[in-house]
Design a protein around this nucleic acid. Structure first.
Lengths: 153, 153
DNA sequence: CGGTATCCTATAAGATACTG
DNA sequence: CAGTATCTTATAGGATACCG
């Protein structure tokens, strides 16, 4: 796959500095290990602070800070819940925006499974058991996995 | 969408710390801003050290170190080239492994376009001009965007 | 249980200068 | 052009203790 810029590769070589793109903006939000691990856990169904801490291995301070950031960015939301006989607490759940971020994690995990093998779980389709893949289409449904993509202003 | 673990969300809540998964391993390699920007540039066709520096805005030291790391990880390879009348130099090009990482960047960029709008280029399908999106299927072609996913050892 | 507060270390990355 | 060297700053994240 190759991503073409303005139709000519040479333009990419000689052009000016590229201004902050959507990749870079998104990375500034989720480009930390703690954000990735917390989103993975949220995707797996983890909802409580303490479970996020234990299952990610991050410290409470890091989890608290990162959850707060993810909530304020709108990818997680807090939701009150109550265990019987206990007082009300906050759960952290993925928003629609957060769920739309999962293809990034799946694509990353799928690559890691192939190119950095050993250790850890795989993400598979519950119905048939096959590995989950992330693929690229355009809004109109055309497959663009061959890299027939342009960066347009 | 929700990703089920071993069929029961409760397992995810109460389970032990999750060992390093493929997502985390892959992130440890490409989870820096410099790696992301350099891979983006490589995808756009940039091949020369100086162009990587100028177009990413990273410093020479950072670019040199990160390119070296990406080469040793096998996602980039050096390739000798020669401009007429100049001496031979090294170009940095994506390997097959590196190209397979691009869906991660595109998924990240696609999310950023929708959820962190303004500024910078958009990734569009060269054929029809529509925005590029990233979605989830399993190896057998079933759509799993509904989150019918399990984490299996 | 669900955090906060401090302190500390490691790493990413910027600035600047220099080299073959 | 393609880097190396040095220094500095910013941020991520760990360790530990404490709190309603």
């Amino acid at each position: 796959m190759e991503i073409h810029v303005a139709g000519r590769i040479a333009d990419a070589d000689r052009g000016p500095a590229r201004e902050a793109c959507s990749i870079e903006r998104a990375f500034s939000l989720v480009g930390t290990r703690s954000a990735v691990l917390l989103l993975r856990e949220a995707a797996y169904g983890t909802r409580r602070f303490d479970d996020f801490v234990r299952r990610t291995g991050l410290t409470e301070a890091v989890v608290a800070g990162r959850l707060r950031e993810l909530v304020s960015a709108g990818v997680l939301a807090t939701e009150p819940y109550q265990d019987e006989g206990k007082r009300t607490r906050q759960a952290y759940v993925l928003t629609d925006s957060g769920r739309e971020l999962l293809p990034v994690l799946v694509a990353l995990g799928a690559w890691g499974q192939v190119h950095l093998p050993r250790r850890g779980a795989s993400l598979t389709h519950q119905g048939c058991g096959a590995l989950v893949l992330s693929d690229l289409t355009c809004e109109k449904g055309h497959d663009v996995s061959d890299g027939d993509i342009v960066a347009s202003a």
